[in-house]
Amino acid sequence: MDLADNLATDPYGVYERLRTTSPVHRIQGTDGQPAWIVTRYEEVRAGLADPRLSLDKRHARTGNYQGLQLPPALDANLLNMDPPDHTRIRRLVGKAFTAGRVEQLRAPIRAVADQLLDALGTDGSAELIGAYAAPLPITVICELLGIPRERRGDFRGWTQALIAPDPNQPHAAKEAVKAMMRFFTGLIEHKRQTPADDLLSDLISVRDAEDDRLSEDELLSLVFLILFAGFENTVQLIGNAVWALLKHPAQLAALREDMSKIPAAVEELSRFEGPALLAIRRFATEDLTIGDVTVPAGETVLLSLSAANRDPGRFADPDRLDIDRDTAGHLALGHGIHYCLGAPLARAETEIALTALLERFTVLEPDGDDAAQWRRSLRARGLKSLRVRFRAGQPA
């Protein structure tokens, strides 16, 4: 079963049909190789925490879907690791994304949001992904890592080529990987020579002082992952949240009436229209039963976060956006030891992005019937563009 085209246009309809017949189905990945997709909440949540489902490609059987292929120097990242290496590296970087550390970043994040909105003016139209949803998180993550402002312009193109490759540009993904490798290698060398008060300098210090804790490939891969995931997931989360609210004006009005609901609304928006259709692929380390299917050892399992979050067996009336819903247990940012490392930062950025946007513009609406353009991707759920009309002041 080839899902790519249908998932690009109607992911939740596809997932509903799959859930209705069985929790597990055989499909083809983006490279044409087979995999198992899991769509019901109970099985997805259990799979996310099951140590028999490994992220390490060494457990993959030849001829099965293995996901994004990166050079070894970028492949030694947390999305390809099991404990104990995963535990060791996550501990090193986890302190940068604690709730307390993120609270200290809220004021700077709001300042960036306000600057971006200032540039839009007070009355007009804009493409909101390029003008707001993308530059906000890239500015934040680059400031955190200490990446010079003049080196930030290419990230959107690189990540786009990897997450949603253009079939008309078959070599774009490989070229993006090469460009990122050159950039990260040069950046690390620069920081070695000129360390500063930033996360990247701290990681380099750990690498150079304690070689047994962080290899050079692990350092390079970690920087890649922080930039790639920390930027792209948040772009999608912000853009998807704005679009969902514009499509549900009653919910948008309720949020405007009580802005204290924004943190809870972000959880519901994450459940309803999260940034990841699928968790990172996993490989069965032994024959195991999922639902009514036995998955042989070495075969690939894709756990659908979006399908689980729309499962009526877990969330009543799941296709309805409800900012007052109890969203406890939603899986938009994962579950278990691989739960999204940057979740506190992604939440804070989305909360601040929505707050600043709604406080600034009392009129915010889609600009035309085709205002939202979705990217074609089996893995990610995100907008290529979102055109809006806006006006500061009193609503018409």
Rank of each mutant, 00 (worst) to 15 (best):
residue 129 I to V: 11
residue 342 G to C: 06
residue 303 L to H: 02
residue 236 Q to T: 07
residue 390 F to W: 04
residue 242 V to A: 12
residue 290 I to P: 08
residue 138 I to D: 10
residue 330 H to G: 14
residue 314 R to M: 00
residue 181 M to D: 13
residue 332 A to E: 04
residue 272 F to R: 03
residue 147 I to T: 00
residue 136 L to R: 01
residue 273 E to F: 09
residue 216 E to G: 14
residue 242 V to D: 12
residue 158 W to T: 01
residue 317 D to T: 11
residue 29 G to F: 00
residue 11 P to E: 01
residue 252 L to I: 14
residue 94 G to C: 12
residue 330 H to E: 12
residue 60 A to F: 03
residue 165 P to I: 09
residue 100 G to F: 06
residue 274 G to S: 02
residue 346 A to E: 09
residue 380 A to G: 09
residue 246 L to K: 08
residue 374 W to I: 11
residue 299 E to S: 04
residue 353 A to M: 06
residue 122 T to H: 02
residue 396 A to P: 13
residue 255 L to N: 13
residue 375 R to L: 12
residue 1 M to E: 02
residue 154 D to N: 13
residue 352 I to V: 11
residue 352 I to F: 06
residue 105 L to M: 14
residue 119 A to Y: 07
residue 27 I to Y: 08
residue 303 L to D: 12
residue 94 G to Y: 03
residue 42 E to P: 05
residue 220 L to A: 15
residue 282 R to P: 08
residue 93 V to N: 15
residue 216 E to M: 15
residue 205 S to R: 13
residue 72 P to V: 05
residue 350 T to Y: 07
residue 46 A to C: 09
residue 374 W to D: 10
residue 63 G to C: 00
residue 87 T to N: 13
residue 233 N to T: 15
residue 326 D to I: 08
residue 338 H to P: 08
residue 282 R to T: 02
residue 8 A to E: 05
residue 303 L to V: 00
residue 137 P to S: 10
residue 54 S to Q: 01
residue 128 L to W: 02
residue 299 E to P: 02
residue 277 L to N: 12
residue 379 R to M: 12
residue 255 L to D: 15
residue 262 I to N: 13
residue 26 R to S: 02
residue 267 E to I: 01
residue 8 A to Q: 06
residue 390 F to C: 05
residue 245 L to Q: 03
residue 370 D to R: 07
residue 322 D to K: 03
residue 175 E to L: 06
residue 302 L to F: 03
residue 176 A to V: 02
residue 235 V to L: 05
residue 220 L to H: 14
residue 33 Q to D: 02
residue 237 L to F: 14
residue 231 F to G: 11
residue 198 D to Q: 06
residue 273 E to L: 04
residue 105 L to H: 10
residue 61 R to S: 09
residue 132 Y to N: 07
residue 194 T to R: 04
residue 170 P to I: 12
residue 315 F to W: 07
residue 131 A to T: 11
residue 255 L to Q: 11
residue 148 P to H: 09
residue 92 L to N: 10
residue 365 E to S: 07
residue 171 H to L: 13
residue 108 P to M: 01
residue 195 P to K: 00
residue 228 F to L: 01
residue 269 L to G: 04
residue 325 R to K: 04
residue 296 P to V: 06
residue 247 K to P: 10
residue 196 A to G: 14
residue 192 R to N: 02
residue 247 K to L: 13
residue 74 L to I: 04
residue 269 L to R: 13
residue 395 P to W: 13
residue 57 K to Q: 13
residue 261 K to W: 10
residue 79 L to K: 05
residue 286 E to H: 01
residue 13 G to E: 00
residue 84 P to I: 05
residue 74 L to C: 05
residue 244 A to E: 07
residue 354 L to K: 01
residue 16 E to N: 03
residue 330 H to Q: 10
residue 214 L to Q: 12
residue 112 V to T: 00
residue 204 I to E: 05
residue 288 L to Q: 02
residue 162 L to C: 04
residue 224 F to Y: 15
residue 345 L to V: 07
residue 246 L to H: 08
residue 191 K to H: 14
residue 106 R to E: 10
residue 237 L to I: 08
residue 354 L to F: 07
residue 294 T to D: 04
residue 233 N to K: 05
residue 293 V to Y: 07
residue 366 P to T: 00
residue 166 D to T: 09
residue 79 L to F: 15
residue 328 A to D: 14
residue 41 Y to N: 11
residue 328 A to M: 09
residue 202 D to Y: 08
